[in-house]
Design a protein around this nucleic acid. Sequence first.
DNA 1: CATGAATGAGATTTCATTCAT
DNA 2: GATGAATGAAATCTCATTCAT
Lengths: 209, 209, 209, 209
Amino acid sequence: MVRSIEAKRENKSNEITQIRRSQLTKATYRVVGRKGYYNFTIRDIAKEAGLSAGLVHYYFKDKQDLLLNLLREMNANLKYYLNKALSELDNPRDKLLAFCDQAFDLVQKEKDYFYVLIDFWTQINHNPRIRNANVKLFRSYREECAAILREGMEKGVFKHMDVDYVATLLISLIQGTIIQYVIDNEAFDYAEYTKRIKENIISMLEKGD
Amino acid sequence: MVRSIEAKRENKSNEITQIRRSQLTKATYRVVGRKGYYNFTIRDIAKEAGLSAGLVHYYFKDKQDLLLNLLREMNANLKYYLNKALSELDNPRDKLLAFCDQAFDLVQKEKDYFYVLIDFWTQINHNPRIRNANVKLFRSYREECAAILREGMEKGVFKHMDVDYVATLLISLIQGTIIQYVIDNEAFDYAEYTKRIKENIISMLEKGD
Amino acid sequence: MVRSIEAKRENKSNEITQIRRSQLTKATYRVVGRKGYYNFTIRDIAKEAGLSAGLVHYYFKDKQDLLLNLLREMNANLKYYLNKALSELDNPRDKLLAFCDQAFDLVQKEKDYFYVLIDFWTQINHNPRIRNANVKLFRSYREECAAILREGMEKGVFKHMDVDYVATLLISLIQGTIIQYVIDNEAFDYAEYTKRIKENIISMLEKGD
Amino acid sequence: MVRSIEAKRENKSNEITQIRRSQLTKATYRVVGRKGYYNFTIRDIAKEAGLSAGLVHYYFKDKQDLLLNLLREMNANLKYYLNKALSELDNPRDKLLAFCDQAFDLVQKEKDYFYVLIDFWTQINHNPRIRNANVKLFRSYREECAAILREGMEKGVFKHMDVDYVATLLISLIQGTIIQYVIDNEAFDYAEYTKRIKENIISMLEKGD
DNA sequence: CATGAATGAGATTTCATTCAT
DNA sequence: GATGAATGAAATCTCATTCAT
């Protein structure tokens, strides 16, 4: 019985903690997207979240901690939605297209997402933990992609290939295109180009056409 | 001529001014590479340049101005060396390879270059002038690349293609690969992968193989 | 009786109140000893006591109050043990030695005791209530000592003397030695020096040698 | 010639640096004396010195640095005046009296001096550099005192004794008396008691009386 | 009684920028 | 041209204290 009281208390505590941390992380995402990685203040976050400034430090050790948490949350989100999209598909071809679309579409749906991600890239040389989180993200990207390629190869849908190399190449194509678009929205017709890229990828990989 | 107009406009373009501005810009490059875009101070720059802190503001309006100048200088440098490399070559095939190598090699020769460039990307959403400089840089990249492709097409070396699209695609491949490498040096064998990418590009573009 | 008056005045002197106040005071002693008078937080105390931060303010008005209470408790303790030790002895000579040992031994048994006491000294110029507590402590020291000396004098064991002056002098010797030792543990052989001091004191006071 | 210009510049720089550091250290002494070791702010110092808050950090790394500097300055001062007083005297007896008076008089001339010193004692357990400075100060005290005693012994003025032990004992007497007085100004007649103490010391040490 | 989330004042510290020399 | 002392605004972070539950 004592334990259940304790449990309730703990749960309650965890609950509000989860709510606040999530609230603050989301606020951070919005604020960083709007003001940039280094031009925002703790007060901006608090204001955006509708909380007091002191609370930010109550739930996060410091600015770094908050930012690192945001990056991790973003990465976790990314993987979650990717896995969800892929799990609904059987065909390696469709999976690969879904993999591409996941990234291509995100840029348009969530304009800030890439701005914030790039902001984090600037830290890889100066913050080991952020470097590490980025390294992990890109590795899991390549592995996810390689897994699809391998499956397609084994099922005889895709040609024989060095899956690791091709995965890296596809990630380059996707990321490189997104970056060009993000830097210059008018550089090219995004919908058109991404469509063509996907066609090129498929025709490059598929057997006997 | 352009220079004298510039001189009149700026009204400070005598010799010492050129020396100091260059001195400070180079110092900024080194310091930003070392400490990161936002973690350096005007004093760091002055110290690195062997000058006093006050002098920085004598030659540059403010921190932003100094940074913008650095970006422009970096872009100008990039173009200068690219043009120099290309001007020594006739063959579109060789030019295209030189174009790729220019970027691929830079990352290894000047490790900081890309870190600093990425740092500037974080400003595209927040600083119109820096966005503009980045937009221009990428446009000139694509145009340079497209020109080579067009020349190859006209000379009958390359297949028929939509040069703008292919230029964008090649830039994506190059930038995307570099980013993956910059974020994670151990992700793949850089020398090996960049070699393969160049081969793939050539075999994709060349006629009748 | 005194206790019931106290209870009425404080209006919180039931059992649990006594337990909690004692719990918190002891925790404060340990924390102040460990972290220093000004570098601890209410949270430190609460944690050390295994209670919540809010509770500290339920049982003590504020930080000052808590600290003041600690000082009073420490002084009360000191007197309690001193009286206990003295009450077991008849001989003024032995009493005086016990008086010295009480102080000399405490430093070694309870290393933190003096650090905490000195911490309180820093407040005498800024906090009247703490000054007052310290004043009282030292007065009672001198009085205690003077009483022993007077008793020895009356019993013909000690020479004739100005007991107030000599009491002050003995306290100086004791406190001064302890301070030197507390500041620098390696300044001298503490056991040896304190032994010699006690001998000097006795031979200085005793009649006809 | 270049060197002399450089020298001039350096000198000028050093000059103002010295002035400011001294200005700030003195202000710190006054403020700490008035408000207590932990109750003062950097702004208090700046205000007291008639300078801006930023300047404090221009000349001192941080609060710790400022405080440590103050302690060192106080110690240096103490030694300077003690040596000056002693150098004017020949007689070991007079020297010893001067040694005592140096400490006894200071308390009355510079009331804050001891308050500030005691404040620093609270740090010995928490700040190694401050501990070290205190350790050094007390050691030099004992050595200074021992040197006088040794000289007196060699000259046949003082009895044979263990100079290190007696030095420690005299320091204890002096410090202990001062502390009692500082804590409670009304505890005893300071002028009277210090006079008696000096007499006792001399009669204890001097030969054949 | 007890909790711990929440507040908000205030302290330290950093630095771009100015300006007298 | 050049210096670097000086300013002061602003940012991060800490914590005693309060109060709803």
